[in-house]
């Protein structure tokens, strides 16, 4: 995994929807970085990750340029999905094949010419760390829930695609353990960019890119200053999670006073 030749991916500024130049010098993404992209709907969040995924060379609507190790990447890097160092998982991304989880992963392993005999089991095992609903190797892909599918795709991107940079577009809606995803991505020295409206994901990231009118407005480096708020939000999140589980379990929530 450490043989990955990518030291950094760099985004150079373009312009917003009105044509005003973006106010940053460069955004550098290195292994292990966790970045959130935040901003109102229509502010250009998805366009930014699309630029990164395509390695824009001043040929998209935003005029941004994306470099790998400070150079224009080789074309095969950009065009062949099996060589591409980026995995993009969006809300729309689906597994359409009607086959078992095991067969689906085996197909990908074959396409990648990976010889490890344990990688399929490892991928399922990793996916199960991200979701509360257990995925069995014999499950049919089409019968998985949204959260299970998302978990499986993230695990696949980490282990089978072995992509150094993973782009996740609004994964919070899928019902997965977000903190664990971030933890595992760090463990595997992957960089990740979240497009998100979720306070917890935003505060768990090292950096926040703030979008407005199609351009990057600013980049925030909280550097621990949000520690207190982050802990508070994590507690609130846990409380909400517990309530959610109880609602799902069919309970009536009749507590008096404000819950802790």
């Amino acid at each position: 995994m450490s043989s990955c030749p990518i030291r950094e991916i760099t985004v150079l500024p373009g312009h917003d929807k009105q044509g005003n130049p973006e106010r940053f010098d460069r955004i550098v993404i290195r292994p292990g970085d966790t970045i959130s992209i935040v901003g109102p709907t229509g502010s250009g969040k998805t366009a930014l990750i699309n630029d990164i995924e395509l390695f824009a060379q001043n040929d998209t609507a935003t005029g941004r340029i994306v470099l790998v190790n400070d150079e224009v990447p080789a074309e095969e890097f950009i065009r062949d999905p099996s060589k591409k160092p980026i995995a993009l998982i969006t809300q729309n991304t689906k597994c359409l094949a009607d086959m078992t989880v095991e067969a689906f992963l085996a197909m990908h392993v074959r396409a990648r010419k990976i010889s490890s005999p344990t990688i399929i089991a490892e991928t399922v095992c990793l996916a199960n760390r991200f979701t509360g609903e257990q995925i069995l190797p014999g499950c049919r892909i089409t019968a998985l829930s949204g959260g299970q599918t998302r978990s499986l795709m993230i695990a696949d991107a980490i282990l089978i695609s072995n992509a150094p940079l993973i782009l996740l577009d609004e994964v919070e809606n899928a019902g997965i353990f977000r903190e664990r995803v971030i933890e595992v991505l760090k463990e595997h020295c992957k960089s990740v960019i979240f497009v998100t409206h979720d306070p917890l994901i935003s505060l768990l990231s090292d950096r926040r890119i703030v979008m407005r009118h199609g351009g990057v407005e600013k980049v925030l480096y909280p550097e621990g200053r949000e520690q207190h708020t982050r802990e508070m939000i994590a507690r609130m999140d846990l409380t909400l999670c517990r309530f959610r589980e109880r609602i799902r379990a069919g309970e009536l929530l009749t507590e008096q006073g404000s819950p802790q």
Binding site: P81, T90, K94, C95, L96, H108, A111, M153, S161
Partner: peptide, 12 residues
């Protein structure tokens, strides 16, 4: 944009 990485690779 609608299909998984693995299906994209196999289709190719």
């Amino acid at each position: 944009d609608l299909v998984s990485q693995s299906e994209k690779e196999v289709f190719r």
